[in-house]
Nucleic acid binder design. Sequence first.
DNA 1: AATCATTGCGCAATGC
DNA 2: CGCATTGCGCAATGAT
Lengths: 135, 135
Amino acid sequence: MNTSSSSSDDGLSNSRSSPLTPQLVLLNSEGGGKATPPSKKKAQRMDRGSEEYRLRRERNNLAVKKSRLKSKQKAQDTLQRVNQLKEENERLEAKIKLLTKELSVLKDLFLEHAHNLAESVPSETSAAGQEQATP
Amino acid sequence: MNTSSSSSDDGLSNSRSSPLTPQLVLLNSEGGGKATPPSKKKAQRMDRGSEEYRLRRERNNLAVKKSRLKSKQKAQDTLQRVNQLKEENERLEAKIKLLTKELSVLKDLFLEHAHNLAESVPSETSAAGQEQATP
DNA sequence: AATCATTGCGCAATGC
DNA sequence: CGCATTGCGCAATGAT
């Protein structure tokens, strides 16, 4: 229930009242020309007020929103898939039940027939042998 | 893992350079007991530095983490369920295939038999042999 | 009124 | 470089 309207926190809070400065990220410490390995300037000069910075932030925020939306979408899809599969499953089970029943009927018919044959024509105890009872 | 560790974002940023000031929320305006309209506005006394505040934040952060973990867990479960259902589906389809084949064979037998009867010449005790169910 | 649970959002680090 | 992901904290809101 949100119209994606901005709200709360925008990284803007500057009330001077906190006695305990929660120590902020120290930036731009610039290696004291000592143990700094042969690395280029990895100095993070993210001048919070820089236009560059602000621009990047905005872009990232956008990307983040997009990504999250996508993620949620996917999750929902997955959920839907579950239902879909469940339905399919039920369908298949019903079919199996039907087929099983049909098979059963046919087999019974076979047996009956065989029996009749035996009764009327005891010529030979043929047929009726491949009954593989499955409990 | 993390317990009360601070990192990034401390809600401290205040560079006024952007053309669009996103208007900040002023809090604690507490009417000086004067022209305050007949509304008992809940003064949000969230003194950023308050111990109360800090405590609440920490608790919430914990709750958030918990909630998110749970959420992820659930998502993963759902994904697993999909695979499970897919497997089940395949199993069922295989079974259907088998049953269908069996049925087909039986029906053919029936037809053949009926045909033979119609011919009134059951001489050819043909067939009836491919009942090779489960090896 | 208080507390925990959810959720949207921005920041920053990290993965392509 | 730039977008995409992801962990994290903040604050509003929902649910008890």
